[in-house]
Design a protein around this nucleic acid. Structure first.
Lengths: 232, 232
DNA sequence: ATTACCGGATTGTTCAACAATCCAGCGATC
DNA sequence: GATCGCTGGATTGTTGAACAATCCGGTAAT
């Protein structure tokens, strides 16, 4: 769900004659990157932590060169930062980065929702809203978080732009890394639960202007909250 | 100019005591990537061309592994595409990619200009406009193209967002690759020369609404033109 | 306290090898 | 004659080892 989707247009089914289709088997480097992405999203690797090539290579049973390739990929996604000759570290949040991230989100999310989208894409937004409601009644704090990410991902997906989708996926991965479970409590979620509902309703009724305004207001307020949480 | 600027905050001066500051010397892989980027922008490597690891490694006098690292970086910027076990190729323009690229541009450029910017950033936009005028009177077709890219880059720079800047830099690199000199003639430029002037004036006068509308109109028309040029 | 130096550790890069995969050509089969 | 399967050559994917370059901490000298 969190991974980029640009090249994943491979079919995963089986053809009519019974012969297996060519399943796309990820390269070792890709699997290493995926594993690291998982550990980052899960909070096992915290911002600022140092990743030593040799250690990870041994832990995962792969070559050092392969680990380097994975590092390069994650660095290009801003999840890791390279300090030349010093090592790679889990990305940390510098002052101003919060505003930076939200600037990107405002640009692509608002632009996407203002342009509307096909009924199927709008239905996907609705589905994310309902997913959030279900997680709420189930008291599934974990599920609430991912439902929200699905919601905002679905909004960008309205634009049907592969490039915007991958950009958004990367931004969401960054946010998972920075604003981890610890920083968000249940009281935090209740706000946008009905706000997402409003945005989705406006979108469904074709009032794109209002949907965009609501979304923009939400993003501005969310930035405020995150800024106060993350010191100053 | 075209390269990413996220990490280039190293100082390039010399300190007062006369001791040399630590100049950031790019790694070999970075220089290989830079060389390939140059050849791509210059049109020496055309879309669809195949890049063989061993050949390039020998040509540039570096190791195959280093070439692979450079390939990975350029692939993450969408300038190259990897076909697993088959090789890397210069990215080609699929149907719908034009719309995709312009969707990204509309999102980040319009959003940036609508938010305005500091006087210095606005002055940079003005500088790009003047740069275009000078190139026009000098009949410098080459200079006209880069002036236009500087103009749109300066617009995104209004937002003061490092992430948006790198995204825009990548998009511009893609456009340099696809819409090469051959596809644009002098008659093509004359249009937006005064259009950039109008946009810049509106920006300087604080009429952000109008500036955004003009920019949006330009992007829509430009997409139309590129679509008709590139088949269809 | 500051500076200079030294040794260990880690990264950057190269090289050589091998496995896995793809591609083109060629013959065998129906 | 077209399809199928095979085989050989070429390229990529991955590994392992080696070495140079660089950084870091500690120690000694001033």
């Amino acid at each position: 769900m969190a991974s980029a989707d640009q090249e994943s247009s491979e079919r995963t089914g089986i053809d009519g004659a019974g012969a297996r289709m060519r399943l796309r088997v990820p390269s070792v480097a890709e699997r290493v990157a995926e594993e690291l992405r998982y550990q980052l999203a899960e909070g096992f690797l915290v911002p600022g932590a140092k990743l030593t090539e040799a250690t990870i290579a041994e832990d995962l049973g792969v070559s050092r060169n392969t680990v380097r390739e994975a590092f390069a990929e994650l660095a290009s996604e801003r999840l890791l930062v390279r300090h030349p000759n010093r090592g790679v570290y889990v990305a940390t949040l510098e002052a101003g980065d919060i505003h930076d991230v939200y600037t990107v989100r405002r640009a692509i999310e608002v632009s996407s929702i203002r342009a509307g989208g096909s009924p199927e894409r709008i239905a996907a937004v609705r589905a994310a809203v309902e997913e959030g409601k279900r997680a709420a009644v189930a008291n599934d704090n974990e599920g609430l978080g991912s439902a929200n990410q699905h919601f905002h991902g679905a909004i960008v997906a309205l634009a049907e732009s592969g490039r915007l989708n991958t950009i958004m996926a990367q931004v969401l991965a960054e946010m998972r890394l920075y604003f981890h479970k610890a920083t968000m409590n249940a009281h935090f979620y209740s706000d946008w639960l009905k706000e997402n509902e409003q945005i989705c309703s406006a979108l469904e009724s074709g009032d794109l202007e209002r949907a965009g305004d609501l979304l923009l207001a939400y993003l501005n307020r969310s930035e405020q909250q995150q800024a106060t949480i993350h010191g100053e």
